[in-house]
Design a protein around this nucleic acid. Structure first.
Lengths: 141, 141
DNA sequence: ATTCGTGCAAAGCCTTTGCAGCACA
DNA sequence: TGTGCTGCAAAGGCTTTGCACGAAT
């Protein structure tokens, strides 16, 4: 039985989901990840904590947690989806087209403007998926 | 041989690509499309103009044109990629989560802020991929 | 004549799913 | 005990690719 005092356990309970060791392991893995891993990478990392987890469960759990709002799916171009724990405030992502590195771009200003635009059209925002593909500029001498 | 005076022909030539009837038909199709069709939908529409075009060619041509900068690929969640003629100025996309409809959100302000953010990090923007999943608000009485 | 593009069919990659067994509530 | 979750393996959807032929330069 997983550690009941964990913050993940509470989050799962609140979402009305059963607390399984696989889900706790996955949430723990994602919480510790500072990058934005894809399902395969998460699979490898989770197995370090619990080697009974299958790839199918990783996919299923990620979808479940996404639906519950605990996890966010990042859909970039020409690559498998990446995932992150749902951040406190939405942010854009800058993707280095050469290295594949992802940099988070927190900006209240961007969020505010998008909010306004959606408002004006009579929409409420469900989620944001913004990535800017960019290349490092040669450093100016 | 396709109509040499067409704007598409010129664009293809400038990109150093051979001018084939398939490519011209695809560009014409995309230019006439006001929505954001996926490869399958483009395939159907292109065949109305030239029924020799194969789905493989649609995919290959879209990738080629994307690389040449003539076409932009829109990568939304849980659905096949959509495409549009590269717009004069970049814009965000609002996706109605219920109907699937895509609304373009032109905003110079958003572009400027993103430009600034990238600049400050020493990056130059290659392309922008921003979609906001949103739901229509109930109309207030 | 050469090079590049195309159609076809097969393969590939990422992701989902059916089913029987197991774990959590 | 009952419901939901899991592992396994198979299937699925979208996209890419090898090959031989055909079209553009």
């Amino acid at each position: 039985m997983p550690n009941d005092s964990s913050e993940f356990v509470q989050a799962l309970r609140e979402a009305g989901l059963k607390v399984t060791q696989q889900r706790v392991a996955l949430l723990a893995t994602l919480m510790e990840s500072t990058d934005h891993p894809n399902a395969e990478e998460i699979f490898v990392r989770v197995r370090a904590l619990d080697d009974s987890v299958s790839l199918a469960t990783v996919y299923r759990t990620l979808s479940t947690l996404e639906e519950a709002g605990l996890v966010q799916r990042l859909t970039f171009e020409n690559e498998p989806a990446r995932f992150e724990i749902t951040p406190a405030s939405q942010h854009d992502h800058l993707v280095d087209v050469d290295s594949g590195e992802v940099i988070e771009l927190p900006s209240e200003e961007l969020n505010r403007i998008r909010q306004d635009l959606a408002d004006r059209l009579g929409y409420e925002i469900v989620s944001l998926h913004s990535f800017i593909r960019a290349r490092k500029k040669p450093t100016v001498s």
